[in-house]
């Protein structure tokens, strides 16, 4: 089951990349996230983490592992829905 999901995911991903839709979606998502303040917020949190630890020793991996769950969880719900709707719409249209 897990491998099936993985396969499905990579098929969708590939289709989005090859049609160029992924770039458009990414650009749109980027703009929406900036507008919503998500990016600012995240940047601030990152700065705080770096300040709270030793700035010279913290690595990108540590930062990512700490921020990733927070970043994912804090994406505004309406943007999430919008993105899914768009992906879905594209997949349906490109099917036909």
């Amino acid at each position: 089951m897990d491998s099936e999901k993985r396969l499905l995911r990579s098929v969708i991903d590939e289709r989005l990349v090859k049609s160029g839709e992924k770039d458009k979606l990414k650009e749109y998502l980027r703009l929406r996230l900036i507008e919503s303040g998500w990016r600012d917020n995240l940047k601030m949190q990152c700065k705080e983490i770096i300040r709270s630890k030793d700035p010279s020793s913290i690595t990108i991996d540590e930062l990512i592992s700490e921020m990733l769950p927070k970043a994912r969880a804090s994406v505004p719900d309406n943007i999430r829905v919008e993105m899914f709707t768009r992906i879905r719409k594209h997949l349906q249209e490109s099917d036909g």
Partner: peptide, 14 residues
């Protein structure tokens, strides 16, 4: 989309 989301999320961490 929720279904898709669930499918996508399961492949991702936390």
């Amino acid at each position: 989309a929720a279904a898709v989301a669930a499918a996508l999320a399961s492949g991702l961490p936390p």
